[in-house]
């Protein structure tokens, strides 16, 4: 090696290191020394990092690090900050009566956004992530303009807070089962009449008579329904459990009635208000409050920040 290293590469005037691989030889072009120091620096940094932060996996859990940092802890801290940032909005929503909320477009927008998040966590299991309900299981569609118990902000908030067919809720009613009470032929006639209320098929006198005697008290003489008892409209195009003769027959003989938990026991009033705003905004909300700011949307500096790139 000592002998090799005395040789000099003629074109460049650089000495050989003495290493050779299949005729390719390495010239001695030293790296700058600062490069070496940088390398030592990164080694020291790595050691310090391993000591300061969680790094080495052990049998049950990894080393914890001197600084006590964890990604969970960081997340908790960020969540806390995010909660604090939301506090002002929540306070504003808490201070506004639910019926006045839609009069303040900016606050309404924030409430809808908060409600959409809460809906996904608490409500979508039954009502679906798009709030479209489920006809087979009888979960109500919240996007349409048909409301069993009322569709303005006040009524929606009451329904969410107190639930349906729950102790302490005004939303109580039971439809009697007509199995064994009506003869099969009578049931057929009644089904035909109910369907005819919304223009499906022919009417008949027997069915109309039976309807007037048994059903009109709650569902109305012409099937207009009664929100006080959550009795569905029968003369419209929306059927919670289907509009086929089979579905209606089954509902007359052994009616199924939905129940909804009272969310007032689990959620705070502001979240319920936000959920109310969200449900109301799905396109079927009733009793709009005219916005005083609608005339000058300039004042509501809503957007730049909401713009998604």
């Amino acid at each position: 090696m000592a002998n090799d290293s005395k040789r000099v590469d003629q074109p460049t005037g650089t000495e050989f290191v003495g290493h050779e691989w299949d005729g390719i030889e390495e010239l001695n072009t030293p790296l700058p020394r600062w490069w070496l120091w940088t390398f030592y620096g990164t080694v020291i940094w790595a050691i310090a990092y391993v000591i300061a932060f969680p790094a080495i996996p052990m049998l049950s859990k990894g080393t914890e690090g001197m600084l006590g940092w964890t990604s969970r802890g960081q997340l908790a801290e960020e969540m806390k900050l995010a909660d604090q940032a939301r506090m002002t909005v929540r306070e504003q929503i808490a201070a506004v009566d639910v019926t006045k909320l839609s009069g303040n477009p900016q606050l309404m927008e924030q409430a809808i956004a908060g409600g959409a998040a809460a809906f996904k966590i608490n409500c979508s299991q039954c009502h679906g992530s798009g709030a479209a309900g489920n006809q087979q299981l009888g979960y109500a569609n919240l996007n349409d303009d048909d409301w069993l118990w009322g569709g303005n902000m006040r009524e929606i908030e009451y329904t969410i807070t107190h639930g349906i067919r729950q102790p302490g809720s005004e939303r109580q009613s039971v439809m009697p089962a007509f199995a064994g009470v009506l003869q099969p032929a009578q049931v057929d006639a009644l089904v035909a009449h109910v369907r005819s209320l919304s223009g499906k098929g022919k009417d008949n006198a027997v069915g109309a008579q039976l309807y007037a005697e048994n059903c009109a008290q709650c569902h109305g003489a012409n099937g207009e329904g009664m929100r006080k008892f959550g009795a569905p409209r029968l003369n419209d195009a929306i059927w919670l459990r289907g509009s086929s003769a089979e579905a209606i027959r089954s509902q007359i003989l052994n009616p199924k009635m939905g129940a909804m938990p009272a969310w007032g026991e689990r959620l705070d009033p502001v979240t319920i208000k936000m959920l109310t705003a969200f449900v109301h905004s799905r396109g079927g909300g009733e009793d709009f409050v005219e916005s005083p700011e609608a005339a000058q949307p300039d004042a509501a500096k809503t957007d730049g920040a909401n713009e998604q790139p």
Binding site: G128, G130, A132, N143, D146, D236, G283
Partner: peptide, 18 residues
């Protein structure tokens, strides 16, 4: 367009898309 639900029936039978 809203994809969930893709369309809605209204009580007067009309169809709504969002």
């Amino acid at each position: 367009p809203d994809r969930n639900p893709p369309y809605m029936l209204m009580s007067d039978g009309s169809i709504r898309n969002a």
